[in-house]
Structures are given as structure tokens and as C-alpha cells.
Amino acid sequence: MNEEEKKAESKKIMNGAAHLNQGSPDTMMVIEKAIELNPENAEAWRELSVAYLKRGMPLDWKPLFDKAVMLDPKEWQGHRGYLYLYFYRNYKKAIKDFDATDILTPNFDDAPQGQSVNYMRGIAYLGLKEYTKSKNYFNTYIDNQIKTSGEDYADITAFLYRGIIAYLQKDYKSAKKDFQKVLKYSENHYSDAHYYLSKCYYEEKEIPKALEHIKSAIEDFNSGYYHTRNYVEVLYQVYIQDLEEQKNLVENHSFY
């Protein structure tokens, strides 16, 4: 085959591998053949890296994914930022990739892995405890959603995280407003929102409301209505122990 035929065959192989289990040995063998035919197939380098990522082998994952970014930065740099953010919690490297993606595609809200880079920068800065920058990016993301599709199209965890920022800054009024939005768009079933509402009301010494929300938080958690992701722990992950501790605190308050 000539070079053009090799590239076409490499692309055909990758399209045919879509039905195989991502990261499996069989898939890796197929992808390696695609790379052999066309070493500039960025998608193949990226897909090959997934096997090592899912096995928790960053030393093998990173050079493969870096190769994909080098070959096609516009397509894969934001995706690498996504992986830095969620799988490795390397917030500074994630932000660097998101910023670079913005430079490559100015005046466009990129969405690697289907999520806005503004939203993900909000999480990254929250992880760094840079609350003002985090809030600004969540605001940008939410405002863009309102402008293009409507508030109800925004990821409800953007309101959750913005509320957490307000709670950490002791702005309980703003925090409660965002947690109520989470409940509004989740049909009133979201453990994390009830949990933080309980914490807000507890700080304001409104014990009956604090107790009401922590009971709802526990009920929703046991029913599976809480913030979680496959493979990784989310930032500010809530566990049943947190809920039980808050319930005990509320029930045994000593304000009066």
C-alpha cells in the first residue's frame, strides 16, 4: 500500500474497533496495527492510552496521550485536561490544557468529553481553593447555558459547586439559593444539596430545617441520588458517614 492507502486502512481499522471493549488486550492489538500503518493517527494513540489509564498506569498512559495531543492538539488537548482533572487531580496541569484549548479555538466554549472547559476550570480552581476564580468560571458556564439553551440545561453540579463555594465563604444566603436550584432541577432528590442545606441552616441556628434536610439527604443517598462518577471520587464527595455525623450534630445541638 502507498501512504494514502495506509492512512485510509488505519482509519478503517479504528472505525471497526469501535465495537470492541475499550482498553481490552484485543482492542490494543487492533489499535497497534492502526498505528503501525499510520503513526500520525492521533485518535489511535489516544485510544491506546486508555488501556493504561483504566489500569492506573500513568507512566504508560501519559506518553501515549501526549503523542495524540502533539499530533492533533485542537482535538485532544482539552481531553487531556479532563483526565488530569478527574483521574489525577492535577488541577494546575488541567487548567493549563483548558487554557491552551481556548487559545486554539477562540470565542468557542469547548466541551471535551461532553463537558464545558469553563465548568471544568471551575472545578480545578475549587480544588486549588481559589474560590473567586472558581466561582467566576461557574458563573461563565451557567450564564452561557442560560443564554444558549436555558438554565435547566446547565449541569446541576455547577450550582452545587457554586453553592459549596458560598458555604465555605460563610455566605449562607447565596449558598442556599444554589442548593435549592439543584433540588429544583432534580425533582427535589439530591443528597448533596440537602446535606449542605442542612449545614447552612445549622449555622443559622434553624434546627428544624437543618434536621428536615439531613433526613432527606440520608434518604436520597440510600436511594442513589447523590453526586458520583465512574472510576473516580468526585471533588467534595459526600459519604453516608458525613450525613450521619451531620444528623447527630443537629439532633444534639447545644445552641440553647
Rank of each mutant, 00 (worst) to 15 (best):
I35P: 04
L64Y: 15
Y82Q: 05
I123K: 04
A124K: 13
E43A: 10
S134I: 05
N139L: 12
T140A: 14
Y137T: 02
M70Y: 13
I142C: 06
K129G: 00
L53C: 10
Y131R: 06
N139R: 13
R89Q: 05
M120T: 06
N144D: 12
E47M: 13
K67R: 13
L83D: 10
D66Y: 11
D72R: 02
Q77L: 15
A100W: 08
G78V: 08
N41D: 11
G122S: 02
V69M: 00
G56L: 12
N118M: 08
D60L: 14
Y88D: 06
Q77F: 13
Q115G: 00
M70H: 12
Y52R: 06
M57A: 11
F138L: 00
T101K: 08
D152V: 07
Y141Q: 07
Y86I: 07
Y125S: 05
L53W: 12
K129I: 04
V50D: 12
P63R: 11
A111D: 02
R55I: 04
L128M: 03
K129D: 02
F98P: 02
L126S: 08
E130P: 03
Y84R: 02
F138G: 00
D143G: 07
D99S: 02
T101M: 07
S149A: 07
F65N: 09
D143T: 15
P112L: 06
M70V: 07
Y125D: 03
L64T: 06
A51R: 14
K135Q: 11
G150H: 13
G78D: 04
R55G: 03
Q113C: 06
L53F: 15
I103H: 00
L59E: 14
T132G: 04
Y88W: 11
Y141N: 12
K133Y: 04
L53H: 15
P73I: 11
F87K: 14
Y141I: 09
N144T: 05
N41I: 05
K135L: 08
N136V: 06
A94V: 02
A94G: 01
I103W: 00
S49F: 02
G114Q: 12
S149M: 11
D60Q: 14
P39C: 03
G127W: 14
N41P: 00
K74Y: 05
S134W: 09
K92W: 02
K54Y: 13
K92Y: 00
K74D: 07
K147R: 15
K129A: 07
K67W: 01
E151K: 14
I142N: 08
R46V: 00
Y153D: 13
G56D: 05
P63S: 08
P63Y: 05
E36R: 10
Y125P: 09
G122F: 01
D110G: 05
K129V: 04
N38P: 01
A68W: 10
Y88P: 03
G122W: 03
E47D: 15
F108E: 08
K74V: 06
F108Q: 07
A111L: 00
G78H: 09
F65P: 04
K62C: 02
D109Y: 15
R89W: 00
Y153T: 15
I142D: 11
M57P: 00
E130Q: 15
L104D: 12
H79M: 09
K129E: 14
L71I: 06
P58S: 14
Q115P: 01
G150W: 14
L59H: 15
